[in-house]
Design a protein around this nucleic acid. Structure first.
Lengths: 253, 253
DNA sequence: GACGCGCTTCCATCAGATGGAATCGGGGAT
DNA sequence: ATCCCCGATTCCATCTGATGGAAGCGCGTC
């Protein structure tokens, strides 16, 4: 019956609907066939389910017949309380950090084995960097990622190892022992550093952000050119920002 | 079989999943029972479908057992190309407008019969106003709404009338003839005005924003105290902002 | 310690999902 | 002008996965 072998278990309608949404992870404006292809669904099924999405408003169809994510989803998402509160609390600290260094400043949270960028400020003359608001990068290969990983619930580290951390550049730390040691150091110092792990010529310094319950809910980072690696104000700056945002979230050390 | 009578047609799994998402329209952190209640689903069904949402990541479950919208949806939504482009193009014009007036400045798009607020800047001393980023207000009762309605595809106006426009305050225009006339004036002048339509003591002036194809895709507005109604700089300001944003989107008059 | 309340799990029944195939539609080539 | 091709859309007989009442569980309260 099943012409195309599926990964895992795509049986339920829900999974299929979500597979369709996932098709928009890469690619903003898709045709029916592209979506059916990425979601690994027969055309007729994809068509029907897309119809449901469109009727609801989560996906809209533009004049050219292509599908794109609709405002309904945007509305639902921007009102999301946790990230909203976090962004509002963080804003002034990120601005300070940005103004005092002129480098890229990031705020990220963990989603599974990835760091999702909630906020970003970048100087025109800073090193090129691929992160953009809403993007998701592997935990082991970024400063914020390591800060998040170091304080993540038990099991996350094991999952990262099990997933086989990818080496992007010679500087990417992928060895279990080395990673574990870094995590320990980060927990001890409250600072995570990564040098040319994902972007050539760039290093990153990150600090955790805690909420009122003491849990690490986010991380702040600065990305700068490796030339400036030794300058002490970066670590100092992100640490202060991390503490400030934590305090704004109600954290009392 | 059907203990609780349902509205319309909730048969399909998709509708049920979406009904669950809609439960978050009002209320950020919900319990299973609240969701089941709002989505008009039996507990067991709501539970199972919520499980699917959570597994996918569109909804997450926090420590206290409550459900909330997840980062996955946020990520999907913020990368949405159209609203992103629009917000980026609009930002400087909105800032100008805000700085030169000190009043509320809004950017909104149409979603069905509502105006959805994409961006908002507000002075501390401006009139109280209920709009917030991500909120949705009826087209007929706001400045941006009227600007969007005036240039909406044929049929939208009829739908607004058919839906029975609600009167919020004495100033709300709900009469078909009066509304139609306003729309015509707005199309002629490129400016929509509404006085105490939704908020007591406030008036709003709005102008349409067009994209490269000439379609009206958004509207800008200022909300200020009725005392300032006669001051000409508001209409002038929003008109200039509307034109500027349109130009930034590639519109050539 | 028993009651109440909200959450979770179970499973027999059947309504709704499925997807291959037929059809439509439009734009490019001949 | 006509044909062809390819993506989108519609159809419908088959059967699988959704359904939700009910039983079970966990926990705070009286």
């Amino acid at each position: 019956m099943r012409a195309v072998p599926r990964g895992e278990d795509d049986r339920s309608v829900a999974r299929k609907l979500f597979a369709i949404a996932d098709a928009f992870e890469r690619g903003d404006e898709l045709t029916l066939s592209e979506i059916a292809d990425r979601a690994r669904l027969p055309l007729s099924t994809a068509h029907r389910l897309l119809g449901e999405w469109v009727e609801w408003g989560g996906i809209t169809r533009s004049g050219d017949g292509r599908y794109r994510v609709g405002i309904k989803l945007w509305r639902l998402a921007v009102r999301q309380p946790s990230s909203r509160r976090l962004r509002i609390a963080a804003k002034p600290y990120l601005e300070d950090l940005f103004e005092s260094t002129g480098e890229h400043v990031h705020l990220a949270v963990r989603e599974g084995l990835g760091a999702v960028y909630l906020e970003r400020m970048s100087g025109a003359d800073a090193v090129p960097s691929i992160t953009d608001i809403g993007s998701r990068l592997p935990l082991h290969a970024t400063g914020v990622g390591q800060a998040l990983l170091a304080f993540a619930p038990p099991g996350v580290f094991e999952d990262v190892i099990a997933a086989g951390p990818r080496r992007f550049l010679p500087g990417t730390v992928v060895d279990e022992g080395a990673l574990r040691e870094r995590m320990a150091r980060t927990r001890a110092t409250g600072i995570a550093t990564s040098v040319e792990a994902l972007t050539k010529g760039a290093f990153s310094v990150a600090a955790p952000v805690r909420d009122a319950t003491g849990d690490v809910v986010a991380a702040v980072s600065i990305i700068a050119h490796v030339e400036r690696l030794e300058e002490p104000q970066f670590a100092l700056g992100v640490r202060i920002a991390g503490r400030g945002i934590s305090a704004a979230l109600g954290h009392r050390p």
